[in-house]
Design a protein around this nucleic acid. Structure first.
Length: 618
RNA sequence: GCCGACAUAGCUCAGUGGCUAGAGCGGCUGUUUUGUAAACAGCGGGUCGUGGGUUCGAAUCCCUCUGUCGGCUCCA
């Protein structure tokens, strides 16, 4: 899409936000309005209707009113008011939220409280040198404080649909009044809107919570508690296979596996800095003797204590630890969501302790692991650079100079990588101990998810007083590099399940081959068992369906479970000793479905498993 | 945590103040021995999420708690 088209779409969506507000005001004249910006795929408007609760049932009415306004083809007119007149207008119109914004504007030269995103308030271009004038837009009798731009008239806004209403804090602050946020999506044409809505439908169909249930991958128990997924045998296969792949890639880089307890005395986190920052999010434990412990919310402090257990020489570095292990965080109940946000999650974690002169090379090699992993899984990656918030420097541990150094090192690594560039900057999204390179995976529906991360950390080695002896016999401070490839396996699987719609490639599939018997005769069962035993000897995951059901029914069941290969065993197979594998429909088949000997068939499946191919060769 | 919606059998769902709460699928039993996406019959299966209230009477109305969902806030 060209910039011009982009600007046009932005103006359409922004104009629709105004039309939404205008329609709401026609229906509820006492409505108080907050802000109404453009967001991804659409727009929203925050409103305060007093005691009146909006629900989806009201959308028909609001949309009808919006369509009237659109049909009226009201021109959008821009005009300016001196700031004091604007304030008088807000008082007159009984718009306390607008009044607050205008008063801020007058006082501080900006409406933007330091802690709020300018774009979201829709006012960043109300520039400080011109505080004596504020821009307004008017359509019909609806006037709104706004920087624009808008389309020429309400008749030019394309296709839209109101989607949902939800609570939202005024100016995004938890202590503030909660308003009702009306969301809409909008596109230039009905076709594009329909396409977007179809994508949402598809996303709903492949929702990992739904597929997790249907494919028997994981469950939640009310007795165990929210945010604590339990993995079934099938789901556990996914976890193991993916993790094994990560570890094989790491083994090429000489990582050593370590193991740590899942709790610690509070003193560790006081030293690392976690206690001060995250005490509320820790699961706390008090022993019967009154000592305070906590469940580990991450692994780095524990790992540092293995490093610190003996004197280290510059010759020992880099020391590379890896461990796939569970962490526990007391997330707010409203934050929990399927596998994407849980209270117990598994990190495929790694920590490197190295000399400063080794940092860049180590980061580059970690980067390679990440690329290999996501390349194999057919995920395009993009890069996000997460740095300190320059306004909240006290929220971080470590010397500011070392932070600058760490951020520069990460940028240097990016500069050396030919095939990827920083796509977005997450200012204020760094960890409290160091800046991050975050890798975003784009799934098959075009959605982006943060997955892998590489972090350079000078803060914790300092706080925990890690050292080594350098070449001149002097004590030196190692650098710590954190790297997770999947990040949280739970979260990664939520993405991967939706990316594949549960149609996992053969090497990941919990069940690779289903053997279906035509009847329950001895010879049939014997042949099926033979095939299955041979497969298991090769390390394959096979399951025999010998139920007293029609072949059609058993095929259907295998299809529903998205098993990649199904073979039917009956008289023909017993006589010929050959099978005709049925291949899951999404898999591209290069050859005809020729009969294979059992050995040939199993060998092919094994080859696909060992070399982790995504497409089948049968 | 906050705002709102929702919670009926293992699953998907019907039942909006009035007989003993239903269906399909799944489960079990029997019949059938099946050839590439659903054989037939029978039988089980529910403290209608929890606790309280209103009422002659509550799955149904009200409150509490728990859980789930959509957002907000948060995310080492």
């Amino acid at each position: 899409m060209s910039d011009q088209q982009n600007d046009q779409l932005h103006a359409m969506r922004h104009s629709l936000a105004h039309i939404t507000a205008a329609a709401i005001r026609r229906l509820w004249p006492d409505a108080k309005f907050g802000v109404g910006p453009v967001v991804e795929n659409g727009f929203y408007y925050d409103v305060d209707l007093g005691d009146k609760q909006l629900s989806n049932d009201n959308f028909g009415k609001i949309e009808k009113e919006m369509k009237k306004i659109i049909d009226e083809g009201q021109p959008f007119e821009k005009f300016y008011k001196p700031i004091d007149e604007a304030i008088a207008w807000a008082q007159e119109a009984k718009q306390p939220y607008k009044l607050e914004l205008l008063n801020d504007l007058k006082r501080a030269g900006t409406t933007i409280a330091k802690d709020i995103n300018a774009e979201e308030l829709g006012l960043e271009s109300q520039d400080a040198s011109k505080v004596d004038e504020v821009s307004f837009y008017k359509n019909g009798d609806f006037i709104d404080l706004c920087r624009g731009p808008h389309v020429a008239s309400t008749g030019e806004v394309g296709a839209f649909k109101l989607m949902r209403v939800s609570g939202a804090y005024w100016r995004g602050k938890e202590d503030n009044q909660q308003m009702q946020r009306v969301y809409g999506v909008a596109f230039p044409t009905q076709e594009e809107l329909d396409k977007y809505l179809a994508m949402l439908e598809e996303a709903k169909k492949r929702d990992h919570r739904k597929l997790g249930q249907e494919l028997d991958l994981f469950v939640f128990s009310d007795l165990v508690g929210p945010g604590l997924p339990l993995w079934t045998p099938r789901g556990t296969v996914l976890r193991k296979e993916l993790d094994r792949f990560v570890q094989e890639l790491r083994d090429q880089m000489d990582f050593q596996e370590v193991a740590i307890p899942h709790i610690t005395k509070r003193s560790l986190y006081e030293r690392s800095g976690h206690w001060a920052k995250f005490a509320d999010e820790l699961f706390h434990i008090t022993t019967r003797e009154g000592h305070e412990f906590a469940m580990k919310p991450m692994n780095c402090p524990h790992h540092t204590q293995i490093y610190a257990s003996r004197p280290r020489s510059y010759r020992d570095l880099p020391i590379r630890y890896r461990e796939t292990t569970m962490c526990y965080r007391d997330e707010q109940s409203g934050e929990l969501n399927g596998l994407s946000r849980v209270r117990a999650f598994t990190q495929d974690d790694a920590h490197i302790f190295c000399r400063e002169d080794q940092t860049i090379e180590e980061v580059m090699r970690l980067w390679q692991i990440i690329q290999d992993f996501y390349g194999q899984l057919d995920f395009p990656l993009s890069l996000r650079f997460s740095s300190r918030d320059p306004k909240k420097l006290d929220a971080y541990v470590g010397d500011p100079e070392l932070w600058d150094k760490a951020e520069q090192e990460l940028r240097d690594v990016v500069a050396k990588q030919k095939d990827m560039d920083i796509e977005s900057e997450g200012i204020g999204e760094a960890a409290f101990y160091g800046p991050k390179l975050d890798f975003m995976a784009k799934d098959s529906l075009g959605r982006q998810w943060q997955v892998a991360t590489i972090q350079i950390d000078y803060g914790q080695p300092q706080g925990l007083d890690l050292k080594y002896t350098d070449i001149s016999g002097v004590e030196a401070r190692p650098v710590m590099i954190h790297c997770a490839v999947m990040g949280s396996i739970e979260r990664f699987l939520s993405v991967y399940i939706e990316h594949t719609a549960g149609r996992f490639p053969v090497w990941v599939a919990p069940e690779q081959v289903r053997v279906i018997t035509v009847n329950q005769e001895d010879a049939t069962v014997r042949f099926a068992r033979q095939l299955s035993e041979m497969g298991k000897a090769l390390g394959l995951r096979l399951y025999i369906d010998n139920d007293n059901e029609s072949v059609g029914k058993k095929i259907r069941n295998a299809e529903l479970m998205k098993v990649p290969y199904t073979v039917v065993i009956g008289e023909k197979e017993i006589e010929s000793g050959r099978v005709v594998p049925r291949v899951r429909k999404d898999i591209e088949v290069s050859a005809e479905h020729d009969p294979h000997t059992v050995e040939e068939f199993l060998k092919t499946v094994m080859h696909e498993t060992k070399s982790r191919v995504t497409k089948t060769s049968l």
